[in-house]
Amino acid sequence: MERPASVIKELVENSLDAGAASVDVEVVQGGVKRMRVRDDGLGISRDDLALALSRHATSKVASLEDLEGIRSMGFRGEALPSIASVSRLLLTSREHGADEAWSLDGDAGEPAPAAHPQGTTVDVQDLFYNTPARRKFLKTEKTEFR
């Protein structure tokens, strides 16, 4: 992840891959302070929330044959773990047909019950808070917002 725009791009692509008909994007202070992407896609099950934040883990490739016919925008399992490693990330999701939603802090731990409609919300705060050298190279808030 190089800038807020690259984070938004990855999150919106994940939403589209999940079959979302609606994707809402919220940006605060050019994305450096906060970015939130909420969709109405298929959602992520409680058991898969931690997997979604694990490096090189993806639900988009189930067999070797799937690699020959990739039709999704993201399939390497790198976006969410990379974003979580340079920000404070909260992943909240309710799988299609599920009775309840679950939330997982990017710093690991166990999923906790949450109030959320069907779909997924990725809330990214304080981008590059733990990598000051990366934060130093960001442009002004207005430029990053563009």
Rank of each mutant, 00 (worst) to 15 (best):
K60C: 06
L53T: 03
P132Q: 02
L64W: 10
V23Y: 07
T140Q: 09
A21Q: 12
T121V: 08
S15M: 04
H96D: 13
R134D: 13
V32N: 02
S82C: 06
A21S: 15
E95Y: 07
H116E: 09
R88M: 11
T143H: 11
A108L: 12
G41M: 06
L127W: 01
H56K: 12
F128C: 03
D39K: 00
N14G: 10
S93N: 09
V12T: 13
S54P: 06
A133L: 15
D105R: 08
L90V: 14
L91F: 04
E95P: 05
T92V: 10
R55V: 08
S82F: 08
L89H: 03
P117A: 10
L91E: 02
L51H: 11
K60N: 10
D66P: 05
Q125M: 13
E10N: 14
G31T: 08
A115H: 10
V61H: 04
K33G: 01
M35E: 04
L127T: 02
A108D: 13
S93V: 06
D17G: 07
V28P: 00
D126W: 06
G77I: 05
A101P: 05
S22H: 13
D123Y: 01
E68K: 15
G97W: 04
Q29V: 09
E141F: 07
A84N: 02
E100R: 15
T92M: 03
A115Y: 06
D107P: 03
L89P: 01
M35D: 02
A18Y: 02
R94I: 05
P113R: 09
D39I: 03
L53A: 09
L51I: 02
L104D: 00
E95N: 09
A79K: 01
R55K: 11
K136E: 14
E26M: 11
S93K: 03
K33P: 00
E10S: 12
K142P: 00
L11E: 05
A20I: 03
R38E: 08
S45Y: 05
H116M: 14
E141W: 10
S15N: 03
R71Q: 13
K136V: 07
P111A: 05
E144G: 04
A84H: 02
R71T: 13
G106A: 09
A21D: 12
K60D: 09
Q29H: 12
A101G: 12
E68T: 10
V122N: 02
A21T: 15
P132M: 00
S54T: 15
E110C: 03
D99G: 15
G31S: 08
D107Q: 14
D17I: 08
D126V: 00
I70A: 04
W102H: 11
E78D: 13
A133P: 00
L64C: 06
V12M: 07
E26T: 12
G31A: 09
P111I: 00
R94K: 15
S45G: 14
V25L: 11
L80Q: 04
S22E: 12
F137S: 12
L53C: 07
E65T: 10
V27S: 05
V122T: 01
V25P: 03
E78P: 00
V86D: 08
R135A: 14
S93Y: 03
L16Y: 10
S22Q: 13
K139A: 15
V124T: 01
A98W: 01
G30Y: 04
V12K: 07
V12A: 07
P113M: 07
P132F: 02
G97C: 09
F137I: 11
A98I: 01
